[in-house]
Design a protein around this nucleic acid. Structure first.
Length: 256
DNA sequence: ACCGTGACGGTTGAC
DNA sequence: ACGTCAACCGTCACG
């Protein structure tokens, strides 16, 4: 456990922390290289990240436009919001003999919940037993929760779990990732320009739940992240000015 | 040789 | 305070 924070070494000699996402800088680098036309297998070798991981990150990027990992840990958004509890209580008061499954149906019928966030029958039973049965005034109703917003992605409660510790417990420059000084990632070019196929996705559009958290100043989509590069000087791919992470990125493909 | 995918062991955080 | 659970992670191996 403790030592896991020091990282382990994969078959390629790269350092990783089991169970934890790669640093954003590396993820960013993976996408950037891919946009430059570097093959995944080369990216894998170059950054010493397993090809499975490269594949996964690129697939995710293609799908969501985000390089960031998903939200780790936590539970699904609560479905028993105060408003739902209020309605359950109301149904129960109107019809003390009502069954939990009937309450469930009514919640759906009344639009209090939708199929995605309607509490299970057992949850309703628990609410009846715990909150309504003996405690007439449950939780403070109303604090922003709202059940009207049925969408799955609505974050009824917390905005988004996500790593509270800003990204990772360790900094971007991984515990030991000597070869790649990714935290300084010289992002030379906006990926959006490099890959016309990938329309720049508005940050708000990125589905990844983790989106809303950190990266406060810069958004998470690669395009946005890369957007802060120097305006001019968008040469094909010469990380000319800023030194490439590992100092040998000039020849992306050939080597190895 | 390359790449997609699933199993695996791990971490995390809400409940 | 602690355990459980379900989300995610990256690596590895297989096809």
């Amino acid at each position: 456990m403790e030592q896991s924070t020091f990282g382990e070494v994969n078959q390629l000699g790269g350092v990783f922390v089991n169970g934890r996402p790669l640093p954003n800088a590396i993820r960013l680098r993976i996408v950037e290289l891919a946009q430059l036309g570097v093959r995944p297998c080369d990216i894998s070798r170059q950054l010493r990240v397993s090809h499975g991981c490269v594949s996964k990150i690129l697939a995710r990027y293609n799908e969501t436009g985000s390089i960031l990992p998903g939200a780790i840990g936590g539970s699904k958004p609560r479905v028993t919001t105060p408003n739902v509890v209020k309605h359950i209580k109301m149904y129960k008061e109107r019809d003390p003999g009502i069954f939990a499954w009937e309450i469930r149906d009514k919640l759906l019928a009344d639009g209090v919940c939708d199929k995605y966030n309607v509490p299970s029958v057992s949850s309703i039973s628990r609410i009846l037993r715990n909150k309504i049965g003996n405690n007439p005034t449950p939780t403070p109703i109303s604090q922003g929760y709202d059940n009207k917003n049925p969408t799955i992605m609505t974050q009824p409660t917390a905005p988004a779990p996500i790593y509270n510790h800003q990204f990772y417990p360790y900094s971007c420059s991984t515990p030991s990732m000597p070869p790649v000084h990714s935290s300084q990632m010289p992002v030379s070019q906006p990926l959006a320009q490099l890959n016309p196929n990938k329309p720049p996705q508005p940050a708000s559009n990125c589905v990844t739940p983790c989106m809303m958290r950190a990266w406060a100043t810069s958004s998470h989509s690669v395009n946005d992240i890369l957007g802060f590069r120097p305006p001019s000087h968008a040469a094909t791919h010469g990380p000319s000015s800023s030194a490439p992470p590992s100092g040998q990125h000039g020849k992306l493909r050939t080597e190895l």
